[in-house]
Design a protein around this nucleic acid. Sequence first.
DNA 1: CAGTGGTCTAGACCACTTT
DNA 2: AAGTGGTCTAGACCACTGG
Lengths: 247, 247
Amino acid sequence: MRWAVVADQLRAMIHQGAFAGGRLASEPDLAAMLGVSRATARQALDRLEHEGVVIRKHGSGTFVNAALLHITTRLDEVWDFAEMIRLSGCEPSVRHVRTRLEAASAAQQAKLGLGEGDEVIAAENVFLADGRPVIFCRDVLPGRLVRQAYAAEELHGPIYAFLARRCQQWVSYNVAEVLPVVAGRALARHLQCPARAPLHYFEEVGYNDDHQAILYSQEYYVPDAFRFHVVRKMTSEVRSRTPEAVG
Amino acid sequence: MRWAVVADQLRAMIHQGAFAGGRLASEPDLAAMLGVSRATARQALDRLEHEGVVIRKHGSGTFVNAALLHITTRLDEVWDFAEMIRLSGCEPSVRHVRTRLEAASAAQQAKLGLGEGDEVIAAENVFLADGRPVIFCRDVLPGRLVRQAYAAEELHGPIYAFLARRCQQWVSYNVAEVLPVVAGRALARHLQCPARAPLHYFEEVGYNDDHQAILYSQEYYVPDAFRFHVVRKMTSEVRSRTPEAVG
DNA sequence: CAGTGGTCTAGACCACTTT
DNA sequence: AAGTGGTCTAGACCACTGG
């Protein structure tokens, strides 16, 4: 994973304002500077381009991307609540709502790949930014995952810490469905917003490195506290079809 | 771009049910089968893994992904209205609302990198699925992009065709902000939904291959007509910080 | 242990942009 | 024509998984 180190080095150099003029050194030069082969340097640059840090132009050069650096939250990458709140310039805190150990509902069974009668832990928390409620989150995880005794308070906050400490499980990626909803009475109370106010609703399933579902989350975000951006790339089908529309 | 051909071949083979049991041949074998080097085969597999078609397990093998294949719409990839509607199993059509040539507002100037007094074309259309309104879209493009005479009807529908035919411009990628909103009276009328119903709102800036902003779009989606999914990957910072929380 | 994917190298040729 | 990124090759070694 030397390419990851190289990517970090390049990211740091870019942030520190090396490459004045916005243009990076050529790939062979970068490879020589960093003491790796061009292929490894390219792998690092692939990563930076994917992140939007850098733009490559065939035959011309590689350039620092100015526009994308200011995007506040990339929908497809960031998903640690405290991190997101901190990125918004606020101090994060948590208020626990409730925790329950119960039989999995049909929906929960489907999302988590459980069977009839399996139990789940359902924890509800509100996350605050500078004391203002901005996220309501219901985390559901299979009871069988728990491998150690735990204190109730460990479910009063980010579930990832609990998954790691008591279940030896780490979420590697989520698949989330994004929906617009309006706040009901209970949500409006938890988030201190008007009833029928629009909210982001994310319905997520988290998977570990083995692609097993280990977490089902329902998250409601106050929209004016965050800005979710996504870079939507041309699909190959669209790209190949468009020229026909020209002729 | 031989790797793209290889990726297409593999995608087709997977779709046709080769690799029974869900396990692909090994990378050296695939390379030999397809007559390319292992590096090229890997680049194709990288693409398929990114698309979610395939899952690779270190030391074990490469497997067909069952779960992700059924996701209806990936938020970060698909964005051709007709395509999206067709993917939902419906027949797409368009109803034109209005077109205007006007001085760019301050917001439009900022989004499109325009100056004082520059003109824009603003076209509003409603897209229908099986005759039911599902998207309201306002497309704004700089007037200076237009390089040929055009008929008013060319703005009654997808803007990409117009951009290609009359502006010689092609959108390469979008940067979209995703927001939840509630339908106002005008929107409710256009989309034939109740007032205050929740809607997806996408505010997008489209860029060409040279990373110049060429299109500013405001899009409202009826949420029950689409399902937007996004794969959210662990960021490197989160990944490196989590183990500390364990100790 | 053998087989798998993950990484890296050195070198080559191509397509594209700029001068 | 020179320099750039895009692609491809052949070969090597590693880390991980499984029997």
